Amino acid sequence: MENIENKKLRLEIIDVIRGITIISMILYHFCWDLKYLKGFNMPWYDTLGSYIWQQSICWCFIFIAGFCVHLARNPIRNGAIVLLCGVIITAVTELLIPDAVVYYGVLTFLGSAMILVGLLKKIPLKLDAFWCFIISILLFCITKPINSRMLNLFVTKINLPDSLYVTNGYYGVGNSILTYLGFMQDEFYSTDYFSLMPWIFLFLAGFYGYGVGKRRFDNGLFHINIKPLAFIGRHSLLIYMLHQPVLYGISMLIK
């Protein structure tokens, strides 16, 4: 989501892409409201195409957020703000729409990732950005099905122990931590769930992708500025916080 970026280092195309992604997300969530809150008959919404649409949104946001850690004045502070917004969304949905409650949603993940990678950035390590980028992508692919109790080894899949996922009728702090990490517990439910794994590796791919691409930042492609889209991209966190109540209100007016 929105990082407070140094204007001298601002790459306008990042804001533009983020703006396009925000618009795509609003449309996707509006369709969700129409289908699940208003009961519209939208069979296409459960198809592979809809899943790819949803994944394209979260992949863009997470990769860009990792990329922008380098452009933020204080990524740890930014992460704390985003994490707090995630807590607010959890509290509001739990109180007002418990049937669509959000636990460990995208803002909770992004805030956590910004803090963790912001701390990593402070460690004086000399790592090759290209190979770190490749390893991050590989780890993301390997852990992508971790919520479903599997790891992807490309030629085969490995089933993870059920003991990591089974609550045995008790859901306590330990189970909640496992769910946060990616081992989604049997009794867990959330309408928006982004665990630390696998998504931290996509965030890291964005973080190291900055190092891979920075030699080319003088290229005009990085400075394409479509002002309306860039404006939306620069205010993505605020728009994210406000869009769902607005969409909910609009959907309630539709007969």
Rank of each mutant, 00 (worst) to 15 (best):
G209Q: 05
I200V: 11
S195C: 13
Y165W: 06
R216D: 03
L120G: 09
H235N: 15
N152I: 03
R215G: 14
F130V: 09
N219I: 07
K157I: 00
G211L: 05
R216N: 07
F201K: 01
L153H: 03
V155I: 15
L125D: 03
V155H: 11
M197K: 03
I135V: 15
N152H: 04
L119V: 14
I177H: 07
S190M: 04
N159L: 01
D192R: 12
F133I: 09
I232D: 01
L119A: 14
Y189C: 07
V212A: 04
L221N: 04
G206A: 14
P198S: 05
C141V: 03
Y210L: 07
M150F: 00
L221S: 07
I158V: 15
F133T: 08
I226W: 11
F217Y: 10
I135A: 15
F201A: 00
H223F: 02
S136Q: 09
A129L: 05
F183K: 01
G182Q: 03
I226M: 04
S195R: 04
Q185N: 08
N147G: 02
M184G: 02
N159E: 02
N168D: 15
I158R: 01
L181Y: 03
L229V: 05
P145C: 01
N159Y: 00
W199T: 13
F154L: 13
L119C: 15
N225L: 03
K144S: 05
I142S: 04
P145E: 00
E187A: 10
I142H: 05
K157V: 00
T191R: 09
M197V: 12
T167G: 13
G233R: 09
F183Q: 00
K157A: 00
Y170V: 15
G169A: 11
C132H: 12
P124F: 05
L229N: 02
E187S: 14
F183L: 01
I146P: 00
W131C: 08
V166A: 12
T179V: 06
I134M: 14
S163E: 13
I226K: 11
V212D: 12
T156P: 01
P228A: 09
I134Y: 05
R215Y: 03
F188Q: 03
G233F: 07
Y171P: 14
S236I: 01
I224N: 05
P145R: 00
K214Y: 04
L139D: 03
M184T: 13
L196S: 06
L119S: 08
T191M: 09
K122P: 12
K122H: 07
M150D: 00
Y180H: 09
F231K: 10
Y189I: 06
P228C: 07
P161C: 07
V155Q: 09
L151M: 13
Y170R: 10
C132E: 07
P124V: 08
S148I: 06
Y180F: 15
L164M: 11
V155G: 12
V173I: 11
G118R: 05
C141F: 10
N159G: 01
Y189V: 12
L178E: 06
V173Q: 04
I158C: 03
